[in-house]
Write a protein that binds this DNA or RNA. Structure first.
Lengths: 351, 351
DNA sequence: TCTCTCTAAGCGAACGTTCGCCTTAAGCAT
DNA sequence: ATGCTTAAGGCGAACGTTCGCTTAGAGAGA
């Protein structure tokens, strides 16, 4: 921190009391135009910037929002981190807010302690949560302690107990299903996440919706669950390709891009060509998706818009005390069609 | 911000003056063991946490470090962001510091204004910079205004005017070269970045070192420059593969993974197999590198160690006023050998 | 002329700390 | 007894703001 210019110095130079300078800085009227102009002049001349700690102490708000997230394992990238962070602090800056990043702890007790600490020490005015999952400890904790927060993601479909913006993952997968069906696929498998993943279940739901819409039966053999890694994608796909010809899928819908990468590798390993022989779709539209061989059809989320919106609405809540409607919002993802689902020719006799 | 417990409340309950409580909290001795124990008891009971704004105001330091970075274009991921951020704020937390993230502005004037503002308002005690490039405006600005900072990256090879940790990219590429030479490659091309990129030039230098060490001549035809995108990698490689047989390269060293992805695609498009026919190496060891077809040999940087170190040393500087030796550090990256450089069989008659 | 209203600006206090100095009492050697 | 040292803790002030109340003076209306 620097020894910087204070209100008093500005006041002395402008020949007014320092409180008057404060009024000018905060646009609190009742200052004559000439005085105001003179004060602004001195402010510019001395390059005065209001001290944020003094201000926060007095105002009892820090204009800072806290955010943490679970680190990705070394072999996996967080596909949305950069865009999400950028969109948030860009929106925040415009309102005079900043983003404080702090460590994630897998241990709930420790994590809650950190939330509590950051809020009670006055470092942050509230939090932005992301990647909520069933039984998320932070949500009830924050609600109970009246610590303001908004979330990117939700817990239960009908829950409105806190403001959030979430992506309708099911809708995205349903788009992928429609696309595959329109290409002629009739036997479509799903690589899903473990059942305890809220996001995974939300996405998978679109698979069922897609089947239903096309009038296809769902076959338990065609749904394989596992962690969202390419290793799981590889194994699951190897299994699927080994199924008897009458139920063997011609397309595989994956709940994220990593699984899709593994799936495409397995397809190739089996001597088939992804896209032409077996359609594969991912989810997340990871930047590398378009550079895979073949480029991967995937589902992209409007991350920058979500981050910006979330931040703006949260700040409005912090300043006015009421969260703008709609409190909870579901946004549609977008299907990016690439070659991993192109060129499929239905085998005759099928369908 | 919350209405939380203050020193005075603790003091009242413990029957001492609030200044004494402050002493206990800050371990400033001259308090009897019994009193101290009693005070700690009350602190625990009331769940007291010292107000950070009051403390910062008085101490004239915010225990907050600022960081910003250039956002990645939508079709490219920042391969190190997550790990770098996590390592930094994890180290920071242990020392009672936090990381403030703020927007990057391409416009120098605006960017410098933000640095100035954040520092002069007392929001941050200093900055961490990354991805320095020639003519970086921030460095002279911060030096001149005596605003503390450290950098991940350097400007000139001999410059010691500010503390930094940098990766010796040249050393990494040299490792790749050694590896390729040991496999029998004698004609090796380089996909380099534009000449105005400091990081790019640093990496490319390892290419020349590698050639020299193997006693190979450098051929200007085999060095192609362009932005570090897969499109450039594709085009450059297509050009290289079209060269006359006597100078056509058998291996391509790329200055980042994106170029390598494009290169491998071009190799395949030419009817050749990356790894077997043409060796390809990348740089960054992007998480997806190992999931490409074939898995990409790449150079990984010890990002978590760098982030942690940088933060710890910076905080030590902020607290003691002197930066620990060595002020400037160069760390070695690590070559991750995968199939994109495996299985090469030198054509007879060559070499 | 008197009062009433309104505007411009001043003033004291408070936000929650930490810092440095002061006071008190006890301990101890002379 | 006296004086010196030390430990334990109190006290006033300050960090830089903002808030709300007060005041001086100008102008208007009766």
């Amino acid at each position: 921190m620097s020894k910087s210019v204070t209100l008093k110095e500005v006041a002395a130079k402008a020949g007014v009391s320092y409180q008057t300078v404060s009024k000018v800085v905060n646009n609190k009227a009742s200052v004559s135009p000439e005085t105001e102009k003179r004060i602004w002049g001195v402010i510019a001349e001395l390059n005065y910037t209001p001290n944020y700690n003094g201000r926060s102490l007095r105002r009892q708000r820090s204009n800072t929002i806290g955010y943490t997230w679970e680190p990705s394992p070394a072999d996996q990238a967080n596909p949305i981190l950069d865009a999400f962070l950028q969109s948030m602090f860009r929106a925040a800056e415009e309102e005079g807010y900043y983003l404080l990043c702090f460590p994630f702890h897998a241990d709930d007790v420790r994590m809650l302690k950190v939330y509590h600490q950051l809020y009670n020490t006055g470092r942050v005015d509230g939090f932005i949560l992301s990647r909520l999952n069933y039984g998320e400890a932070s949500v009830p904790f924050l609600l109970e302690n009246k610590i303001p927060f908004v979330a990117f993601g939700r817990l239960e479909d009908q829950d409105q107990s806190f403001p959030y913006i979430d992506v309708d993952g099911g809708q995205g997968v349903a788009q992928a299903m429609d696309h595959l069906v329109s290409l002629g696929h009739r036997s479509i498998a799903a690589l899903a996440w473990p059942e305890d993943s809220r996001v995974g279940n939300n996405r998978l739901e679109g698979y069922f919706r897609g089947l239903a819409k096309a009038g296809l039966m769902s076959d338990p053999n065609l749904i394989v669950r596992g962690e969202g890694t390419s290793a799981v994608g590889f194994e699951a796909t190897t299994y699927l390709l080994g199924l008897p010809a009458d139920i063997r899928p011609t397309a595989i819908v994956c709940m994220n891009d990593m699984m899709a990468i593994g799936a495409m590798q397995a397809v190739r390993t089996a001597g088939l060509q992804p896209g032409r022989d077996i359609g594969v779709t991912g989810f997340d539209d990871t930047p590398t998706a378009r550079y895979l061989t073949p480029p991967l059809t995937s589902i992209s989320q409007p991350i920058p818009a979500i981050g910006e919106n979330l931040m703006r609405r949260f700040i409005e809540y912090l300043e006015t005390g009421s969260y703008p409607e709609p409190r909870c919002e579901l946004v549609a993802p977008n299907l990016e069609i690439r070659e991993s689902t192109a060129g499929y020719v239905p085998a005759k006799g099928r369908s």
